[in-house]
Nucleic acid binder design. Structure first.
Lengths: 241, 241
DNA sequence: TCTATTTGTCTAATAAACTAGACAACTACT
DNA sequence: AGTAGTTGTCTAGTTTATTAGACAAATAGA
């Protein structure tokens, strides 16, 4: 990975270096326990000052990705990235089972609002129609994995918000509405920088990159039942189709 | 979209503002021809100086996303983002047909090398085995859409490099090896910043975000035939499953 | 024509990022 | 004990990003 020497892209040099090293680690070039090149060597590799490299390393140390030991070197601490499978039958908890010890979902709140153009198009209803909007965050072993906003048609699921706080999973609440099975109709994937709220809720550093997934689930008859906008930290997650 | 006021994340303020406005445009909040808020209003919205906003707008103007007109305001020029479909039968040219007038693929070169751990695992061969590596860039209406590196087992496809320059598509070359049909076995999707080479080849500005797709194609018997690492500019493309 | 609004351009000052060099503290090895 | 190599810390100077203010140039509408 080569990086841009001229700071004309609006990404600070220390961040480019941190991203490049993190990529070597999550990409498998450096395994857990490996010693990184010395600060001097990294400075030469990136054509940067040693202090700039140190700043990048201190960021990675704060993330828990590496750890420096005076006199010995800097070592890789942890190197795992979770995989989130996407397919016809995508279920959140099933997909990540086995990759983490504990998996929790926090419901941050919900409200009824009028559908904007994007939500209406996804759910196949008219803009302005009432929809239930649910905000949530999911965590694996205490580490935030995704920030999700879900919209559902109010007419069909008037008390969805009330039921989601009792039953823990969307699957269970859908079942309570008589929907035994549902499937994924489409998933759109994009990427962008995190904003302030996402940075806070996901425990990221400002400037982190998010994978953004927009998914529509349909019932057995093919009628849209939910539109979910999920944001995953790209440094901790990858999506698998 | 709220942005981080304190520049502690290594992303320059003008870039955060440019990203936020671009997101409003490709996300549909602003349509082609719409007038943006005035520079003063944007400065207030982002709690930044007008000059910082102007820098963000000049970047978007260079990208062709907006255009400023003295005395009148700044207007949205183009707002489209191409969708790249991913599924069991993913074919590059088919997927984008209809979204662009012209679709071209440039072959940047190829060579035979030894498979590293990642490539070997994807192709189901031993690390160190010989593989053909092919570099390419694809363009829609002259605008770069993806940068792809493909690895194939040398034993099975010794002259793949020679044939790809004559026949234009991978599908055609596979057919010349007697592979009438093939399908996508898995696709892993992640995101990161572009490096210098990718920035140049894709015609991006430093610091642009890439969607990274790692795909394995298999023949009718399920034997891996290719491992492709594609990088899409997140500002111009989204992936649809 | 006049006026309010908006983008374009210039100068200047402050804050942050980056570079440079020197030396201390610690480790591993001879 | 001595030495080479590594990370930790300090000072200082340069470049870049950001803010601040003023005014010119163009537009639209009264």
């Amino acid at each position: 990975m080569t990086i841009a020497k001229d700071m004309t892209g609006g990404i600070a040099l220390w961040r480019q270096i941190a991203d490049a090293i993190r990529l070597d680690i999550v990409g498998g070039k450096l395994a857990t326990g490996d010693r990184l090149p010395t600060e001097a060597a990294l400075a030469q590799r990136f054509s940067a000052n040693r202090h700039t490299v140190r700043r990048a390393l201190s960021v990675l140390a704060d993330e828990g990705v590496v750890g420096a030991e005076q006199g010995r070197g800097t070592f890789v601490r942890s190197a795992r990235r979770l995989s989130y499978p996407i397919g016809k039958r995508t279920r959140f908890s099933e997909g990540l089972a086995g990759q983490a010890r504990t998996l929790t979902t926090q419901h941050l709140g919900s409200r009824v609002e009028n559908a904007n153009a994007a939500v209406a198009a996804a759910l196949g209803i008219k803009p302005g129609n009432r929809v239930v909007r649910i905000e949530g965050v999911s965590l694996a072993d205490g580490l935030p994995l995704s920030r999700t906003t879900t919209w559902l048609p109010y007419r069909r699921f008037p008390d969805f918000a009330g039921r989601i706080v009792e039953r823990l999973s969307f699957t269970a609440v859908f079942a309570s509405y008589g929907i035994a099975d549902y499937s994924r109709s489409s998933t759109r994937i994009s990427a962008r920088h995190a904003d302030v709220e996402e940075t806070k809720l996901l425990g990221l550093r400002p400037g982190a990159i998010l994978l953004v997934s927009e998914a529509v689930d349909v019932d057995a008859e093919g009628v849209p039942i939910s539109y979910a906008l999920s944001r995953f930290p790209a440094e901790r997650m990858e999506l698998v189709v």
